[in-house]
Simulated scan of single mutants.
Amino acid sequence: MTTALHEALTPADVAAANALTRRWLASRDEIPAAASGLGIWPLLAMLANGATGKTHRELLAALGLDATRAAALPRRLLDGARAADGLNLALGVWAGPEVVLDPDWTAELPVEAIGSLTGDAAADKAALDAWAAANTDGLIETMPVDLDADDPIELLLASALLVRTEWAVEFEETSHAPFATGPWSVLERPRILRATYGEDVLRVAEDATVLTVRGDGDIDVLLGLGRDDLAPHEVMSALLDAADPSWGRSATSLAVGEQAIGVRVSEYMAASPQTGPEIGATAVAFDVTADLDLTGDAEALGLTLAADRERARFERLAARRLFVSQARQSCTARFGPTGFEAAAVTVTAMAGYGFAPVFEHRRVRADVVFDRPFAYMAVHRPTGLVLVAGWVAEPALA
Rank of each mutant, 00 (worst) to 15 (best):
L77G: 15
G80E: 10
A81H: 09
R82W: 08
A84P: 10
D85R: 15
D85G: 11
D85W: 08
G86Y: 12
G86R: 11
G86N: 10
G86W: 09
L87H: 08
L87G: 10
L87K: 09
N88K: 13
L89A: 09
A90V: 01
A90Q: 11
A90E: 13
A90F: 04
L91R: 10
L91P: 10
L91K: 11
G92K: 08
G92Y: 11
V93E: 09
V93K: 13
V93L: 12
W94V: 03
G96P: 00
G96V: 01
P97E: 08
E98F: 04
V100E: 14
V100A: 15
L101A: 03
D102K: 03
P103K: 06
D104I: 00
W105S: 09
T106M: 10
T106V: 14
T106C: 07
A107E: 11
A107H: 12
P110F: 01
P110T: 00
P110R: 04
V111M: 08
V111C: 02
V111P: 11
E112P: 02
A113M: 06
I114A: 12
G115H: 01
S116R: 14
T118P: 11
T118I: 05
G119I: 04
A121W: 01
A122V: 13
A123M: 08
A123Y: 03
A123C: 04
A123K: 08
A123S: 13
D124E: 08
K125L: 04
A126H: 07
A126F: 03
A126W: 01
A126S: 14
L128S: 01
L128M: 00
D129C: 11
D129L: 07
D129R: 06
A130H: 06
A130I: 00
A130Q: 04
W131I: 05
A132Q: 02
A132Y: 04
A132H: 06
D137A: 15
D137T: 06
G138E: 04
L139R: 15
L139Y: 05
I140G: 12
I140S: 11
